[in-house]
């Protein structure tokens, strides 16, 4: 029988450690994804995952259930990421390493039908999105992360970030608009570069 988050939280609060382990198993991947997209380093993201669940466990008695357990966890994670960047004096969203072997890329295809060219394009886009997101103000970046990758409603985001619903919509709209312009510009630059490379190699 699959228990809901609320049931598991109640049991964990009463001292059932196994219930808390189940909550971790259920939510550690989304928490890792949020931390990674916020910090940009897998190693840091894993540390944040561990710390986030430890904090959650310590704070279980203080969790009154006004919000969803997942929202509560996301808030803990974002706070940790913010502290992480400040304390470690690291730049958030460090770029992934450049240059990847085509053989390695072939092993990472999302589906057997995905060609290596498509995979390269997807990875280029991933880097482009990562760079563009890194340049957004924190509040816009958080709104987009929570909406796009974690499916929270406007109201849940507003409750989590402690701002009005209309503010969330504004941050989302402004953030997406900036991203759109930057991505279009990057794509135009890359197309121009490819064209120049092709012309120089063919002449």
């Amino acid at each position: 029988m699959t228990r809901t988050d609320e049931e598991l939280v109640a049991r964990a609060t009463a001292g059932d450690l196994e219930s808390f382990n189940q909550l971790v198993a259920r939510w550690e991947r989304p928490i890792h994804a949020l931390a990674y997209r916020t910090l940009g380093r897998d190693e840091d993201a894993r540390d944040v995952v561990q710390e986030a669940f430890l904090r959650a466990y310590r704070g279980l008695r203080g969790f009154k259930g006004e919000a969803k357990f997942s929202s509560w966890l996301y808030r803990i994670t974002l706070n940790l990421c913010r502290d992480w960047v400040r304390c470690e004096r690291r730049a958030a969203l460090v770029q992934p390493p450049e240059g990847t072997d085509a053989v390695d890329l072939a092993d990472e295809r999302a589906a057997p039908t995905e060609s290596v060219e498509e995979l390269v394009a997807r990875r280029e886009m991933s880097k482009a999105v990562s760079r563009a997101m890194a340049e957004l103000p924190e509040e816009q970046r958080h709104a987009i992360l929570l909406k796009e990758y974690h499916g929270l409603t406007f109201q849940e985001i507003a409750d989590m970030l402690g701002c009005p619903l209309s503010t969330v919509k504004t941050r989302l709209y402004q953030g997406l608009s900036v991203l759109r312009r930057r991505l279009e510009r990057q794509q135009a630059e890359e197309a121009s570069l490819r064209r120049a490379t092709w012309e120089s190699s063919s002449s």
Partner: peptide, 27 residues
Amino acid sequence: SGLRRVREDLLAWDVPEYESVWRPFVP
């Protein structure tokens, strides 16, 4: 149209393979 396109672009941002770092609590 532009908002929908940028949302599709956002889907390309993947995360590394994740293996659990959590050591389960043991009663």
